[in-house]
């Protein structure tokens, strides 16, 4: 709370444009962090392939928008004020479904075997590292290592009050982030599956003996986590106006800093952590070399952990 008041006190001294940028980046980080923290809480390991699920999503979007949809006559860019065309609206849901199904398949063929043998946290994490390398290799095999772009048309930035200059795409990105975060909130708090997920995160053995279908819970966790990651990948590719095979892996550091800051296994905390890290690391560029952004993120995280060793929001899914 004190930190919040101090933060607000500083607001008159910073460029509002940086704050606005930070909120948009924070929204994208949040999509990654909420999924990763659910996986961490329910499956018990850090999914190091999470960033590469993002990359896969971004490149599947490229495949759909660049190759598949134009074949059947669905193409175009510059929809309304945006740089991209309406194919994004078709490609995004398809990408989400494809990455979610892929993640469930990977779990069924690899992680489930390890769970059945009661493999530990580290073995699972290292296996996900192998997955991350394999996925990145796959992306490089298919699309090569160079930068790529979605079909796009340059657009004028909006000039908003408080000297904020924003690309119109930012409106779309924030709208998608807000809708998905709200959807996850509703799923976790108001559906049977959400309740079962929270119970499993709290105590998997108790959940199992209470008759909760933990296999189903795990499938849904992957579906939600990977689906959010795929969305984050597409949105990041739109926001940065480019795709790279390492985009997700690099972005993942911010994702993990955020979910740690918010308390591992806590989606609400992950959202708070993502916004906090998005905004502060963006504001810091006023005084520092922008490539120190991850350093700012980790410094905030470590300082917060010194005061509250279990994250700023204490407690797990509630």
């Amino acid at each position: 709370m004190v930190a919040f008041i101090v933060g607000v006190g500083f607001l008159p001294f910073v460029k509002m444009e940086l704050v606005a940028n930070g909120i948009i980046i924070g929204g994208i980080i949040a999509l990654g962090a909420i999924g990763a923290t659910l996986i961490f809480g329910i499956l018990g390991f850090a999914n190091l392939a999470h960033g590469d699920y993002m990359t896969s999503g971004a490149y599947l979007g490229l495949f759909l928008m660049g190759s598949v949809l134009p074949r059947i006559g669905l193409e175009g860019e510059g929809l309304g004020p945006f740089t991209f065309g309406y194919p994004v609206l078709i490609a995004l849901p398809l990408t989400v479904v494809a990455v979610a199904v892929g993640a469930i398949w990977i779990d069924a063929s690899i992680y489930r075997r390890l769970r059945n043998r009661r493999a530990g946290l580290i073995i699972m994490t290292m296996t996900s590292l192998g997955m991350a390398i394999a996925l990145r290799g796959l992306v490089r095999m298919i699309w090569g290592g160079d930068t790529a772009q979605y079909p796009r048309e340059s657009r004028q930035f909006y000039n908003l009050p408080l000297e904020i200059s924003m690309p119109p795409d930012a409106v779309f990105i924030s709208a998608v982030s807000v809708i998905l975060v709200a959807a996850v909130y509703i799923i976790l708090n108001y559906t049977r599956m959400g309740k079962a997920m929270r119970a499993t995160s709290d105590n998997p053995d108790l959940a199992l003996v209470s008759g909760i279908d933990t296999a189903g819970v795990i499938r849904w966790t992957w579906a939600i986590g990977a689906g959010l990651a795929a969305t984050a990948g597409v949105l990041l590719a739109v926001f940065q106006a480019q795709l790279l095979p390492v985009m997700g892996w690099d972005f993942m550091l911010l994702v993990f800093a955020s979910l740690t800051l918010g308390g591992i296994g806590n989606p609400h905390g992950a959202l708070m952590g993502a916004l906090l890290i998005g905004v502060t690391s963006e504001i810091a560029t006023e005084w520092m070399n922008p490539s120190y952004k991850p350093v700012v993120a980790f410094a905030i995280m470590i300082l917060a952990l010194l005061v509250r060793p279990r994250g700023i929001i204490v407690g797990k899914l509630r």
Partner: peptide
């Protein structure tokens, strides 16, 4: 021996080691 395929293979081999001998 293609660099990108190698990257993919390395990942697959690491996963395989853990699936075979956790």
């Amino acid at each position: 021996s293609d660099a990108n395929f190698r990257f993919f293979m390395i990942g697959v081999l690491i996963v395989a080691v853990f699936v075979i001998r956790p």
